[in-house]
Amino acid sequence: MWILVFFDLPTETKEERHRHSEFRKSLLKDGFNRFQLSIYTRCCPTVEHANMHIKRVKNFIPPKGTVSIMCVTDKQFGKIVIFHGPKERPAPKVSPQLELF
């Protein structure tokens, strides 16, 4: 399971820039990786684990701006097609899933 956090936060004032920076730092501290400028991702082994991280993100969302959170399966995330300029790039490496028997 992958968590994708999309955000569009205001950065017009010094306080807003500080909140934007703190939000990004909080995502990084919680194990998210930058996928694009305002998109961060995190791989979770279970839905329960993903829900725990979603609750954490909700706790440090700034008062202004928009934050969206989406969960996709490992298989869905693996089907991402990335274009950089005119060339197609391979999808990012998928973290191995933990299997318990």
Rank of each mutant, 00 (worst) to 15 (best):
K79R: 11
V67F: 02
E99L: 11
I69S: 01
N59M: 10
K55V: 03
D74Q: 12
T13L: 00
S21F: 06
I39V: 13
Q97D: 13
I69D: 01
K75W: 03
V81G: 14
H49I: 11
E88Y: 11
M70I: 06
I80R: 12
A50H: 06
I82W: 10
L100P: 03
P63S: 06
Q97N: 14
P63M: 03
R42S: 07
S68M: 07
E15T: 08
L37P: 01
Q76M: 07
I69Y: 02
H20D: 03
E99T: 12
L37R: 01
I82E: 11
K75G: 08
F60S: 04
D30E: 15
K64L: 02
Y40N: 07
I54W: 04
F35C: 02
P45F: 12
P92C: 05
R24V: 09
R89H: 14
T66L: 00
R56W: 07
K55C: 05
H18P: 03
F32W: 03
P90V: 09
Y40K: 08
V81H: 14
H49N: 14
C43D: 13
E15Y: 04
S26K: 14
L27A: 08
L98A: 09
E12A: 00
C43G: 14
N33R: 15
K87E: 15
C43M: 13
P96W: 09
E48G: 15
V72L: 09
M52W: 11
G31Q: 09
G78I: 06
T46V: 06
K79D: 01
E22T: 12
R17M: 00
T46R: 09
Y40M: 06
L98N: 09
P62L: 02
G78P: 08
K93C: 11
P62E: 01
I54K: 12
E48R: 13
T66Q: 00
P92T: 05
Q97T: 14
I80M: 13
F60T: 07
S38Y: 01
H20V: 04
M70Q: 02
P96Y: 10
C71W: 03
V47F: 12
T66V: 01
A91S: 14
T11D: 00
P90L: 11
R34L: 04
V72Y: 02
K55M: 10
T46D: 08
P10Y: 03
L9A: 05
R17V: 00
S26T: 08
S38A: 06
R42W: 05
